[in-house]
Structures are given as C-alpha cells and as structure tokens.
Design a protein around this nucleic acid. Structure first.
Lengths: 368, 368
DNA sequence: TTGTAGGCGTTATCAC
DNA sequence: GTGATAACGCCTACAA
C-alpha cells in the first residue's frame, strides 16, 4: 500500500502525457488464463462462410443475403460470440469510445449532464469514457492526448477555456467534438450551453426588481465560468446606477453548503448593509440560507437569496430558494445526440446551441 | 433526430448483450483521415533497435540496458509517440480498463465513491470506465458481459445482489473483482463495504436512546440495500419492546428532497403519533425536515430526524441533521487500491473489508 | 453477394 | 540484454 501510494504521488507529479500512458514495471504483468475466446472465425466455420461475411452480417446486415444472415445470427447466439472491441478498434482505426472531460465528478451539476449523456448513449454501440480534469488545464491537455490515442468516436469537453495546446489538439482531432456548459461564437466544432454572464445578470436584475437595494455576490471555486457569472453580476450592478458598490466575497475553495454559511457570515461582517445575495451556485445559496436562519433573519424579507443551477433541493427548501435553472441534462443529451448524428451521417443540426436558462423566482426573494 | 430516437428505443427494448455490442448499419462508418500515427516501429527505427526493445524499454525498463533506455526515452519524447491501447490490448489479451458498475450516476452517494476511485487510479496506467445499471439486474448482466469482452484489468460492482447469471460471470472473470457498498461473507472475490442493516439498527436505537417513543421509517427507491436498512430499523423496533409498531412509508420512486417532504406529510396522516423518523437517505431526511418546518414543528423537540449517509449538507443544515456517516470515498479508494495491488502482485490484503459507519448525532435528534 | 489477401500496432515466445 | 517471428481478432480494399 505504501509503495503504491508513493508511486501514485510520483506519477501525479510528472507532467508529460507519457507518464500516464506508459506502463511502469509492476503494471501490466499478464495474468494469463485462457478460456479460448469465441472469435469471428469460429462463427464463420460453424456457418460455413468466411469471417468477413460474418463481420458484415453483424455490422451491415443489408449487405448479406437474408438466409445467411439468419444462420449467422443464430450461430452467433449459440456460440455466444462477443466482438472484441480492441481488435475492432485496431483494424478499423476507430474506437467506439466517446470521451468526456469534466472538471469534477462530485459536482452535482455534472451529474445531471452525465445522466443525460449516458441515457442517450446507452443502446448504441458507443460507450462513454469519463475523465476528470480537476479544474487543471494541464491535466485536461494530457487527458485529451490520452483520449486521442484511442481514436475516439467523439469527444465532449466542458467549457470553452481550454489551453492553447488543448484547443489545437481538439481542432486537429479526427472526430466530432462538442463543448458543453458554455457558449461561444468560435467553438472548436460544436457547442451546447448557455451564457453564464447573461444568466447571472438576469439573476441580479431580479434582485433589484424585487426591491433589494444592496445585493452581494458570493462565489466559491472561481473557475472561468464562475468569473463570468461574477461579470454578469457586475454588469447588473453597473446598470443599476452610477455609484453602485460591487459587494462580493469569493474563494478558490471548492463549493459546499458549509462554505456557503461561512461566506455568508464573513460577508455580513464585511458588508453589513447587504440585503440580498446572488450565489455562484446552489450549495452556497443553501448554506447561506441556513446561516441567515441561524442569525434569526427572515428569509426573503430581511435577506434575499438567489442560487444558480436550480438543483432539485432549491424548490423543496423551506423557504424555497430562488435560482437560475440551467438545462444540464439536456446539455448532456444534446451533446451526445450531436455526436451520434455526425457518426451516423445524419444531420447534426446547428453547431452552436444556446440552451438559455430560466429564472425560478421563489420565496427566498419575496420581500412581502 | 427522430430516426435516432427511434433506434434508441428499439435497442433499449432488446435484451441480448449482442444488441448493445453490434454496430448497426449507420454506426461505424470510418471517417478516415490519416495523419500517420507514430508507432513503435518509428521509434525503433530512429534509435536503431527492434520494436520489441522499445516496447520493453517502456514497460519494463530494467530489462533494457541503461544506454538504450535513455536513447529510447528521448526518441519517444521527440517523436511524440503514444502507445495504442487497442493494439496493446489485442496483443496482450488485457486491457487497462477498470470497469465500474453502479446503479446511478446522479446519486450523490456514488459520486463520492467515484471520486475516491478516480483519484486512486489517476496516475496509473489504468483507467476507469463507468457503466450504469439503472438498478436493473438484467442491464447489469449485459454490462458485465460487455466489460468482460474488453478483458478488463479489474471490475468493481456495487452491491451483493447480482443475478445468478451475473454472479457466475463475475466468478469466472479472469480479473480481480471488488464488490462495494455492502458486506458479505461470500464475496465473488473481494468486497469493501459495511452492513446497512446494522447501521440502520444503530440509527433507530439512537432515536430510542434520545427518548423518542414512536419512530417511523421513510424510504424511497427500495433497492436491496434499502430493504436491509428497513430490516435494521425493524430489528430495533422489535428489540425495543414486544408490542412495538412498525411504522413506515416507502416507495419505489427515486429519492429526492421533494419526495422526502411528500412522504413526511403522508406519514403524518397515516401515523400521526410518530415522533421521530429514520430516513433511508439524506435527501429524504432534508425534505422531511423542510416539511416539518412548514408545519411549524420544532425539529428535535417535536420531531426527531435521522438520515443516512451523512452528505455534507447534513451538518450544515439548520438545524443540523443527525445521520449515519458512511465512508464512501474510502470505499472507492480501497476498491481501486485492492485491484491495483492485485495487478502489481502486491499484497491486496484482506478480501473482506468492513468499513463500518459512524453515527453523527446532531440537533435534529436533540429533544432538549 | 461473397471471398482473398494483407495489415492495424503491439506483445509473447523462443532464440541468440 | 536483444531480436526475429508469429500471433492477437478484426476490418479495408479489392477481386470474383
């Protein structure tokens, strides 16, 4: 265990993609046990045709006469033949992998995206392979390289803030690429998302519209998308009046409910006149609401709260919390659909899709 | 789009594993664009050795003389050689895939497990491939077959309630297998988890110990693990007295905060004397707490609430909510470590690991 | 519609 | 310590 941990540390510290790919001395030591795999040839022999015919019967049934087709299908079932993806990939120079790069597996937001993705891909010959960039651009770059070495069927990456190198890799990639979670006029290939800046601006405008005078921004894990939300908040503040104060508290720490409470308390010290908050995400908003309740504040009346993403809990909370709904599941679905469409030479539709967002006004921003 | 949707429906309706694996007519139509891949041979030629030597230099450096080794490493870097996983898998009859089968990607509980898993595997030559059983045993079985067709380096499956066929497949699998999230005396191979029944019993005993007289069980998505939690609840009720009532409300619906509120309200109609609840999971507990607050109940005093899993939000909630902490991240880590240890011929340790659980008593079960 | 030949990039085996 | 040769299982290209 210790040796292992050490090795992990070591490898993680290295930077070249090769460090990830090369098998170290202890790694692949084959554990051979050989229960003869059923191959195309076995099926071919059983039916009395050549392997290529079986291959075709499976991939392009219409190219094989009906009689043969059924005999082959039967034999396949009887022998329990299962194609070998490696052999297939090697011979065809194409794998059935759809690579997905997201910054965090634990983040609820991506969970919904993934769910849409998996549901769409299930039942097709393709399968999703997930990788975790941990919000680190260099890791993202390495991972893109790894994926490309597998000659993926498609690639889905979160965001538009790739490094120059990553961007170049993606542009050269010999497969459909979809960026998700954001919009841009200049996607690598296709993009499905929405404008974080606009959404944040709308949220803040909602606070003003509801009569709050001194909104503040609470943000954690300030990645580029979060910065754009802050920019949107800032837009609204500026638009509201020439001498509006930009009240905010942010941190690079990963977001959590606890952190929301903590930041709220700090904010109240720093900017005591704050009467409403727009949170970077729902976890923070929920935590802030709890903190406000602990202080005896009446949510809505004493303090307005708005989250971002509209996780399921926001509507169920007491009081219910205002949030900006984002169409996460749909992003996953659409991204997958667009890739599948390309692969099957159907029409993939517009390369740029703005899914927008939706303000869900609830009790937490109701002053009455 | 319509054609695609139709096909998805169709395929999802079929049952044989082959339906998932075979490429239908529109599927793999190679989009050939050939920017000549750098191969082992290119490196070999550059250095003036044979391919196998390069191969060895990368996988088992100690088998190659030091001089060659450095020259090879340099050439590899200069040429930008990246191994082809398919070719490797085909030749070695082993892929670097660690297959992971979980019932739901959206479930927070699994997010933490995955996070532990990914972190442990990152930096090794192996990579995780996730699949979604959607709580359906037949899907699980198909997915196991698919994974096995890739000759995985290891397999991680959630739970101990596999179908007979799945179990057989796993037992014959020519790779390490780890079951997670539960314990059993008869694992397929290795297992890392805890006893849901014991944990639930302890939670219920805690309610009695805190002076509650009429605890009820609230459960959603009653999968086998949830049933064992109910059994543990039931154990405690029986142990508490000969004529204890088994108050409960359950549903097969997937769990959510909203559902927690809804079930709580129903429970109050059905079993109005209930003075404490043990919830199947934290989402329900949070939702129940919100519902109780809506009714004007004082949490802790009027109603005791206990969740399960101890998601981060439980401690941050107002009032904070009692829960059973489970070591999800650790399960992911350990499962991965055990597989890696096996693969590197280190000592994988005990095949059965009970990670236990921990009662986190908080304000929601404080009657004072 | 079916088949033949050859190769995809790597590793296992067995020599040297 | 290094290399030649033969797989690995399937698919592309071309031929019949």
């Amino acid at each position: 265990m210790t040796a292992l941990s050490f090795r992990l540390l070591l490898l993680t510290a290295l930077s070249s993609v090769n460090d990830y790919l090369f098998v170290s001395k202890e790694a692949v030591r084959n554990v051979p046990k050989h229960s003869k795999r059923v191959t195309l040839e076995d099926v071919a022999r059983a039916v009395g045709v050549s392997t290529i015919t079986v291959s075709r019967a499976l991939r392009r049934p219409e190219m094989v006469s009906e009689g043969l087709r059924t005999r082959i299908t039967t034999a396949v079932a009887e022998l329990g033949y299962v194609p070998d993806p490696s052999a297939r990939a090697l011979a065809s120079r194409r794998s059935n992998v759809i690579g997905v790069l997201i910054p965090s597996v634990t983040n609820n937001v991506f969970a919904d995206v993934l769910s849409g993705l998996y549901d769409t891909v299930t039942g097709t010959p393709y399968y999703v392979q997930l990788a975790n960039t941990r919000y680190i651009p260099s890791v993202e770059e390495d991972l893109i390289r790894i994926f490309l070495s597998q000659r993926p069927a498609g690639l889905i990456v979160a965001g538009i803030d790739q490094s120059t190198a990553s961007r170049a890799l993606l542009e050269q990639a010999d497969c459909p690429v979809v960026q998700i979670m954001d919009v841009s006029d200049t996607p690598v290939d296709m993009i499905v998302g929405f404008s974080h800046r606009d959404a944040a601006r709308a949220a803040t405008e909602h606070l003003f519209a509801r009569g709050y005078k001194a909104p503040a921004f609470i943000g954690a894990r300030m990645d580029p998308r979060s910065e754009r939300r802050l920019a949107g908040f800032s837009d609204a503040i500026k638009a509201a009046g020439p001498n509006g104060t930009l009240r905010k508290i942010t941190t690079a720490e990963p977001s959590s409910t606890h952190l929301g409470s903590e930041l709220f308390d700090k904010l109240m010290e720093l900017e005591p006149e704050t009467d409403a908050i727009f949170c970077n995400n729902d976890d923070l908003a929920l935590g802030a609401q709890f903190a406000a309740q602990r202080r005896g504040l009446t949510i809505g009346r004493d303090i307005g709260i708005c989250g971002f993403n509209d996780l399921e809990v926001m509507g169920a909370a007491y009081p219910s919390i205002t949030s900006i709904r984002t169409f996460r599941r749909e992003m996953g679905e659409l991204a997958a659909r667009k890739i599948l469409a390309r692969l099957t030479e159907e029409d993939a539709g517009e390369p740029i899709i703005d899914l927008k967002w939706q303000l869900c006004a609830r009790d937490s921003t109701d002053r009455s």
